[in-house]
Design a protein around this nucleic acid. Structure first.
Lengths: 265, 265
DNA sequence: CGACTAGTTGAGGCCAGTCAATGTTGGTGG
DNA sequence: CCACCAACATTGACTGGCCTCAACTAGTCG
């Protein structure tokens, strides 16, 4: 209860180092003690799902049992595809993942760009099959959280239940924001929103909000914000020229976030 | 269990009559007996939330108690605004509702066009305040379902819990579809998708999938599918000319759904 | 080192937006 | 019931922002 997750200091904020530290942190032992699990919750998205409230020892053990299954993905590996049976949510511990929606005629749309500390997989709940595909953008490590278990446990733990609902609802809110961007913003506004949003998410995790490495190609970014890759590239160049950002390949520094914000509204 | 909601014949499918029957059906008595409530569930969106599984008498009574609060809205009346405290979901019994997201700089984006049988309000769960506004597009009647009560009851009823989760996840899936449309489709494809989607939803409710009355203006439709009102109007005219649809103001007949589908993919 | 992918930049075209004039519909009050 | 008005819708002419096509460059990996 008193252990406010938000104000807890976060470990190692190494986003400043561009390309040298691509890999995830230290390897994890396959057997996880409660203590070790708790320690990891501090750094992973699960703290949003489980830490805002107090566990009893028994509940902690139950929850710990859920998280036993860990997954590692190499760059470009697929976590799940559209049509795959749904059985778990995934909390991203290290790395990043894109989710891609596919239309019948083969069109692709990147619907999400998820970084460490975020939980994905909600798309599968609707009819027990995933309806987007999730692909690692770099070497990535995830906790698989069997959804049956979460539902079971959340019936006994109202705070967990509430938290699960909030996460799903925030996904809905996030998508509404994306719709607003896609439906009513001009190209330069979209890219500014994309950068500012990403900066904010890094900031909340204790990483630098002004300097980070994009894990998506120009084409993937374009798909995400509804533009062609050439347009994205041109805008990066223009923002760079105008002194608002510094771009070197996929490394981005925000030099004048205020200007970006003004550009949006 | 055996009472499959999907195959149940639906009452009065009066979508064919264009402008004469604008109002909702017969008035409801303010006091609702269990029997009356059950009867109404057959025709309203709640059957998706509560009817796919068997109630015990006790559970039925509990659930019935939830739904005591009914709301009526006249055309253009506001159900809730962005920032309003969240306390309930709303099942649309008669009528239709649009949901609108607002950006800081005053931009508006229609994020949803909800017809009878659908449940809205999930946007408020994320942080106990609504973040879009919901406005009746015609005289509309809704059941307010206090969310605390739903959460409570769903802890005792796994099937209700599962159903709630499915509804939220389908909202997410729906939004992904909208993002795909907004991000990667041309104007004519968007309008075709819009019409076909609406037709399908009417069909599933037992109404005519080929003839219906739009409850949104050209401008609202444009906002929903990311176009300007003039473009929407031009496309309606073109589709009409080409014989795919018949349009008379807000009354639409789909004459060649196949052509519309081919146009999309 | 060569092949390949990712990114940049330029020239030109087209689709949808903008601006503007006109027509239509529906609600209101005399 | 009709006249009126305001909101909604249609249509045209023109503009411009983003896409398309294309050439070139910079990294990356076998």
């Amino acid at each position: 209860m008193a252990r406010a997750a938000k104000s807890a200091p976060l470990p190692q904020p190494p986003a400043g180092t561009p390309a040298t530290r691509t890999e995830a942190g230290e390897p994890l032992s396959p057997v996880i003690s409660i203590r070790e699990f708790k320690a990891h919750c501090q750094t992973c998205g699960m703290r949003e799902l489980c830490l805002p409230f107090a566990f009893t020892a028994d509940q902690m053990q139950q929850f710990d049992a859920l998280v036993e299954h860990r997954t590692r993905l190499k760059k470009h590996e697929v976590l799940y595809r559209a049509g795959d049976p749904f059985h778990a949510l995934y909390a991203i511990q290290f790395g990043s993942v894109k989710t891609v929606a596919l239309s019948e005629d083969g069109r692709e749309q990147v619907t999400g760009y998820h970084i460490l500390g975020e939980v994905i997989g909600f798309d599968g709940i609707g009819d027990d099959r995933h309806c987007v595909e999730a692909i690692a953008l770099e070497n990535t490590e995830l906790c698989a959280l069997p959804f049956d278990g979460i539902e079971n446990l959340s019936r006994a733990m109202p705070a967990l239940q509430r938290n699960l609902h909030q996460m799903m609802a925030r996904e809905i809110t996030r998508d509404h924001g994306a719709m607003l961007m896609l439906g009513s913003m001009r190209a330069e506004e979209r890219l500014a929103v994309f950068l500012l949003n990403l900066a904010e998410r890094y900031r909340r995790r204790g990483y630098s909000p002004t300097e980070f490495v994009l894990r998506m190609s120009r084409e993937e970014i374009g798909s995400y914000i509804g533009l062609k890759l050439e347009t994205v590239s041109r805008l990066f160049s223009r923002f760079h020229q105008e002194g608002m950002i510094h771009v070197q390949g996929r490394t981005v520094k925000l030099l004048d976030a205020g200007a970006l914000k003004k550009l949006v509204g």
